[in-house]
Design a protein around this nucleic acid. Structure first.
Lengths: 225, 225
DNA sequence: GCAAAAGTGTTTGGGATACACCCATGC
DNA sequence: GCATGGGTGTATCCCAAACACTTTTGC
């Protein structure tokens, strides 16, 4: 059966805000636009959503095409963010963007992708479209998410030290936390368990390595912070 | 300039979850479908989003057309919820739905709209499409929203009693709250102020009427509950 | 021995929870 | 005077916040 469609739909696009932490800085993966509009400016990886594919599938495809990143393989957490739809956001015509946010660590792109790079969220280049707004929105959501879920796991290796965990929080929240209170609180949440492995690195006392009990998103019993 | 569009976009639709509280029950406004698919079943008011109109504008239009409700006039709080996009959600073809949630009180529709009605969220009729999922998602989000924002104002008249306020919370959260603790906590948030007016009704002590300081959404200093 | 990060406890204040009775009114 | 909902206070417990020194290692 065919839709009796009285209206022409707008173009549908998807865009990805891909976060990772590098040198204790929260960074976003961007691509440099090769063509107009906004040629030479940086933008979120994104592209068209065709009929018959979900936005999540389209995202996977365009992030692979545009940035050489495999979403499912490289990002341990992906969620839909918001749908941006102001009529003038794309100068070529009305394009509705369903945006996603993803978090990973050491996100890799093929070397051929010379126009892919990762920038600190608090020091972004000039951005195309309304992408600066989208990133700001994503950052706010991410910070909130860390306070009431176990989402940090997405930024960390399988085994990690408590200092690394705390540093991840600090990078996302943008402020310092008290070491003793942080450890006490986090350990009391029961999300992680210690391993018998230590991390020894540099001229100082080795650090105990921990693991998450679950690497799927779950709500915290008491919200953090 | 014209898009060089390599893909045909899916159909874009908008759907509204309109909440109100009636007899201390959280209810949702639904319309009875007059045509296939899902003829005779109930559904969220919604419809096509044309190129050139924002989803918010399309929502306003279709909610007026389908349910005879004026969103801006009748609902004091509206927010975008989520975009549902599974390919099979509409049997006629791939339709991506940008959904919104709105809250109001005594939401009115014209008498001619015989196929519009309001149902308790915990006792819904058989619903078309994936609308049961959408309502469940909206309800969860609404409950969360009440705990960290002043969003309840949308369900209440300009002046209201503390018992009415508490009842609104209870209807949304689906559980009882302690009267003394509720009042102490809510008053300490500084969101409302008392007026010199009393509500006298029935054979019992009159109740002090209160007003919100702001009727725009704001975050609570300490989260509620 | 010294530089560097890991690790560790206690005190204090404030808010969450639990809980029961008197007040003002209409009839 | 009685039925109905409005209105009020206290004690306890847990958690958040503030805060500084010792431990283990590599060189």
């Amino acid at each position: 059966m065919k839709y009796t469609q009285p209206y022409t739909p707008p173009t549908l696009v998807v865009d990805a805000v891909i976060f990772q932490i590098v040198n204790n800085q929260l960074q976003v993966v961007l691509i440099e636009r090769a063509a107009d509009p906004f040629k030479g400016m940086w933008a979120l990886p994104g592209g068209y959503n065709a009929v018959g594919e979900t936005t999540r599938d389209a995202l996977q495809r365009v992030v692979q095409e545009k940035a050489g990143i495999n979403l499912s393989a490289d990002l341990s957490y992906v969620e839909q963010l918001y749908t941006f739809d102001t009529v003038a956001r794309d100068p070529r015509g009305h394009a509705v963007s369903v945006t996603y946010m993803g978090c990973g660590r050491n996100v890799e792109w093929s070397k051929s992708e010379a126009h892919t790079a990762s920038f600190p969220v608090d020091n972004l280049p000039k951005l195309a479209y309304d992408h600066a707004d989208i990133i700001q929105y994503a950052h706010k959501r991410l910070a909130a998410k860390l306070t009431y879920t176990n989402a940090v796991y997405a930024f960390l290796p399988k085994r990690f030290t408590l200092s690394e965990l705390q540093a991840a929080y600090q990078s996302v929240l943008g402020r310092e936390l008290d070491k003793r209170n942080f450890r006490k609180k986090f350990l009391s949440l029961g999300l992680i368990h210690e391993t018998d492995e230590m991390k020894r690195e540099g001229a100082h006392r080795p650090a105990r390595l921990y693991e998450f009990n679950a690497t799927e998103l779950e709500a915290l019993s008491r919200s953090f912070d």
